[in-house]
């Protein structure tokens, strides 16, 4: 059962408050040059179909509810990838009055993609990393029924440690 999800993960994309640069790079991943569809990755509009949540841009008061809502609608197990420096920390817009900061202020993030704009190679790499986390979360769920709530409500902090942390937590459970 687990094999199928990691072989054909579906993504849902939401633009927080990005400049479009990362969004068009996310779309570029799906088009013939990079073509992740050959690995079974499909961009679907429905959060209930998705395994991976790609967020570009930072969060603000207006959209944080929507980011949260999309995240909550996604079925377990799920993985969040923050695409671009704005989604990681706020980036160049960090000091703007309407920017709260990275996506991890609102939902737990599993993989971070640096760059302004994030390059398609980096986005693909992060999704592949995210699949490892997805597998770990799924294994944890299968081991322990009824499934417990996913690891943490609070934000995961360090870029490099984030992926490892979740994996470890998954392993312990």
């Amino acid at each position: 059962m687990s094999a199928y999800v990691t072989k054909s993960p579906w993504v849902v994309h939401y633009d927080g408050s990005s400049c479009n640069g990362c969004d068009i790079e996310v779309l570029a991943c799906l088009t013939p040059m990079y073509d992740v569809e050959r690995f079974g990755i499909i961009n679907c509009g429905n959060p209930k179909h998705a395994d991976v949540f790609l967020v570009t841009g930072s969060v603000n008061e207006q959209n944080k509810g929507i980011v949260k809502q999309i995240y909550e609608q996604m079925p377990e197990p799920k993985v969040v990838v923050a695409v671009g420096i704005c989604a990681c920390s706020g980036g160049i817009f960090k000091d703007c009055y309407n920017v709260l900061g990275g996506v991890d202020q609102v939902i737990p993030v599993d993989a971070y993609v640096p760059g302004c704009a994030a390059r398609p190679e980096a986005i693909i790499d992060a999704v592949v990393k995210g699949l490892g986390v997805l597998q770990a979360k799924r294994d944890a769920m299968l081991e322990q029924k009824p499934a417990e709530e996913a690891p943490a409500e609070e934000a995961v902090e360090e870029t490099a440690e984030a992926v490892e942390e979740v994996k470890e937590e998954g392993g312990e459970e």
Partner: peptide, 10 residues
Amino acid sequence: GYIHRGLEKL
């Protein structure tokens, strides 16, 4: 208003 950043004030 979902993407407003307020970058002019920067």
